[in-house]
Computed example of a mutant assay.
Amino acid sequence: MTSSAKWDKLIPAAIILFSVIPVLGGALRLGELGGGAEITPDNARFFASPVPVVVHAVTVSVYSILGAFQFAPGFRRRRPGWHRAAGRLLVLCGLLGALSGLWMTVFYPKPADVGALLTGIRLVFGTAWVVFIVLGFAAVRRRDFTGHRAWMIRGFAIGLGAGTQAVTLSAWLLAFGAPDRLSKAMLMLASWLVNLAVAEWIIRRQTLPTRAAIRVRATAGETR
């Protein structure tokens, strides 16, 4: 198996594996709403206004799983038409996922473990998710493919925040018990920051060969 073929399998598999917990959480929430589960203080807000949480669960699941295959370089090169068609769907799902998340943050009653700090953090990153997707879409419209790739990777990093948060919150729960408001806010903030740091590393790793090639071409032109 070639190196490209290995990455085509490993990268999507890793992202999908990382998305399992939030995707399953969304599926369980949809099953709860559709199956007429008992209404409790923890889920009453979802039964009172189910549309935003349904939209969020469906679109973020599609965004995570379908988006994973955009990171398979060989697959993307072999099927550019698929990449473009899937990209349009991902833009729609990403925007709906982000906007529904912002709606829930603003209008749903706050659980006991969610304070003003976490609400503010969610608003910042939810807004950034929308902005990054819009900038990525605008970049590809003007054929700035490097900028398009960078902004979409940043948006995807925010969209995968729930996966990182599931890991960090679970680890904290096992080590120290249920987090208080401040601890939960800091853990969720750290998760998004880690994702964005990884995104920036990927972006710079991909752009360095391009910049090197430009310098080589420029040098070759000067020596002619």
Rank of each mutant, 00 (worst) to 15 (best):
H83Q: 11
H83N: 05
H83D: 05
R84E: 08
R84G: 05
R84T: 08
R84W: 02
R84S: 09
A86H: 00
R88Q: 11
R88S: 06
L89C: 10
L89F: 11
L89A: 13
V91Q: 01
V91M: 13
L92C: 01
C93M: 15
C93K: 03
G94Q: 07
G94A: 11
G94M: 09
L95T: 03
L95M: 12
L95G: 07
L96S: 08
G97W: 03
G97D: 10
G97Y: 04
G97M: 09
G97V: 10
L99I: 14
L99Q: 00
L99S: 12
L99H: 01
S100F: 04
S100K: 06
S100C: 02
G101E: 08
G101T: 08
G101M: 09
G101A: 13
W103L: 09
M104T: 05
M104F: 05
M104Y: 05
T105D: 12
T105I: 10
T105A: 14
T105C: 07
T105Y: 01
V106H: 08
V106L: 14
F107A: 12
F107M: 11
F107Q: 12
F107L: 13
Y108V: 07
Y108I: 07
Y108E: 08
P109W: 06
P109D: 09
P109Y: 11
P109A: 04
K110W: 09
K110S: 14
K110M: 12
P111C: 10
P111Y: 10
P111M: 12
D113Y: 02
V114Y: 02
V114I: 15
V114W: 10
V114H: 11
V114F: 06
G115V: 02
A116N: 09
A116S: 14
A116V: 15
A116T: 15
A116L: 15
L117R: 10
L117T: 14
L118D: 05
L118N: 06
T119P: 00
G120Y: 11
G120E: 08
G120Q: 11
I121N: 04
R122H: 14
L123Q: 11
F125W: 10
F125I: 06
G126V: 03
G126D: 10
G126T: 05
G126M: 03
T127V: 13
A128S: 10
W129R: 00
W129H: 14
W129V: 01
W129E: 10
W129G: 00
V130T: 08
V131C: 04
V131H: 03
F132H: 08
I133P: 01
I133R: 01
V134C: 06
V134W: 11
V134S: 01
V134P: 00
V134T: 07
V134G: 02
L135E: 12
G136V: 03
G136D: 04
